[in-house]
């Protein structure tokens, strides 16, 4: 199975990855190989087998409902691309 230009562009949009036209042909070839690899799974009879998301059967733990975090805003924002008055800045989304 092969992916068309339109398929690839749609995936890239969903993944928020800008693709250059020059990348598309190469990616199509690589995807043909990857899909060929994962399509092997279609031949396996898995009737009656439950999907397994995690190898170890771990229950989710609950913790006490207590405040455990302290205010570390300044420290965490020290690595942000753009902040002002404690807020993360992004381009305007509402005119």
């Amino acid at each position: 199975m092969a992916l068309t230009d339109t398929d690839l562009k749609r995936l890239a949009r969903l993944a928020r990855l800008r693709l250059e036209e020059s990348e598309i042909t190469g990616l199509q070839g690589q995807f043909a190989g990857i899909l060929g690899l994962i399509d092997q799974l279609q031949a396996v009879d898995t009737r009656g087998i439950e999907p397994l998301s995690h190898a170890l059967d771990l229950g989710l733990r609950l913790r006490e409902d207590l405040v455990t975090e302290t205010d570390q805003r300044a420290r965490f924002q020290s690595v942000a691309p753009q902040v002002e008055e404690g807020l993360y800045l992004v381009p305007k989304v509402i005119e």
């Binding site: 994962i38 799974l41 279609q42 396996v44 898995t46 087998i49 439950e50 999907p51 397994l52 998301s53 190898a55």
Partner: peptide, 13 residues
């Protein structure tokens, strides 16, 4: 793909 892979994962385990 995704659910089928998770089923085969169980067979591997």
């Amino acid at each position: 793909y995704y659910l089928q892979a998770q089923r085969v994962r169980r067979l591997i385990v």
